[in-house]
Amino acid sequence: MRIGFISNVVHPFVTGGAQKRIHEIGTRLADNGHDVTIYGRHYWDGPKQAKYGNLRLQAVAPSADLYTDDRRSITEALDFSARSLRPLSERLRANEHDLVVTSVFPFFPVLSSKLAALGTNTPVVTTWHEVWRDYWEGYLGPLAPFGKTIEQLTARVPQYPIAVSGITADRLAEIGPSRDRIEVVPNGIDVEKIRNAPLPEKSYDVLFAGRLIEDKNVALLLEAFDTIAERHDATLGIIGDGPEMDRLQKQAATLADQIEFLGFLDDYEDVLGHMRAARVFASPSTREGFGITFAEAMAADCTVIAAQHPESAASEVIGDAGYLVEPTVDAIADQLDAALDGDRPPQDPLERAGKYDWDAVAEQAETVYQRAIDGRW
Rank of each mutant, 00 (worst) to 15 (best):
E183Q: 08
S203G: 12
E214D: 11
A116P: 10
I162N: 03
K193H: 02
V125E: 00
L115Y: 09
Y135G: 08
A163F: 02
G166M: 03
P177Q: 13
G147T: 05
Y139K: 02
F208H: 06
F107L: 11
Y160K: 08
P142D: 13
L236A: 04
P200S: 12
E130T: 08
E214C: 07
G147Y: 04
L111E: 01
V157H: 01
G240F: 08
I194A: 10
N187W: 00
L220M: 06
E174G: 04
K202I: 15
F108R: 06
A209W: 01
G210N: 06
E244T: 05
L140D: 01
I213A: 11
L222R: 04
I182P: 04
I150Y: 00
P145E: 09
I213R: 00
F146I: 15
D205I: 15
K148F: 01
S113Y: 08
L118F: 04
R231E: 14
E223N: 14
I182D: 00
R231Y: 11
L140V: 05
P109R: 04
W132H: 13
L143D: 07
E151I: 03
K114F: 13
V191I: 07
S203T: 11
I194Q: 03
T154L: 14
V218G: 02
L207Q: 03
E223K: 15
Q159P: 09
M245G: 01
V131A: 04
P200V: 15
D190A: 04
R156K: 15
E137K: 14
